[in-house]
Design a protein around this nucleic acid. Structure first.
Length: 153
DNA sequence: GCCAACGTTGGC
DNA sequence: GCCAACGTTGGC
């Protein structure tokens, strides 16, 4: 059982969009970074939990919790020329990119802003606040997970 | 919109 | 394998 942080631009796919999905579950498409893919492909397990993070928006921050509900499987959007995630170099016989399905667990009453996280000593080691951090899927330690949850309770 | 920090590509 | 050029991410 691992903890993660997964970024999404709310203009593209917000936690409210996830809540509105059938079974409040959706495929996590479009990971096109090898390090993020490797985390997903090699480390993610059914039952893992992740913070849902809104990026590239007015108030970036953690907005809730989701759960991984499938094993990794080939990301079909890589084979779809009409998808913005199309990758002509991904061979269907040997898929380069993977997806998992995630299910909504909880939406926090208030967003936990990145600006707040940056001020907290107990979260100073989060990958999210490390210099040059760009990964859209990041591991979170149990200590960090619980420290964040403390802010919501 | 700016730009720092990364990641990827491709010539050599 | 090096590295310059280019592309992307994402906070501000």
């Amino acid at each position: 059982m691992n903890y993660w942080l997964m970024k999404s631009e709310p203009d593209e796919f917000s936690i409210d969009d996830l809540m509105a999905c059938p079974n409040q579950t959706e495929a996590w498409h479009g990971i096109r970074n090898y390090q993020a893919r490797n985390f997903m492909r090699d480390m993610m397990q059914v039952g893992d939990q992740a913070f849902f993070y809104h990026s590239s928006c007015k108030v970036p921050g953690i907005v809730g919790i989701v759960e991984v509900v499938t094993r990794p499987y080939p990301d079909s959007s890589a084979f779809n020329p009409n998808s913005k995630y199309f990758d002509p170099k991904s061979d269907p016989a040997q898929p380069r990119w993977v997806s998992v399905d995630i299910r909504f667990v909880e939406k926090f009453n208030d967003i936990i802003p990145l600006s707040l996280i940056k001020t907290l000593p107990q979260l100073a080691d989060m990958y999210l606040v490390s210099k040059g951090s760009r990964l859209s899927i990041q591991p979170v330690t149990a200590e960090q997970w619980h420290a964040v949850l403390m802010l919501t309770r």
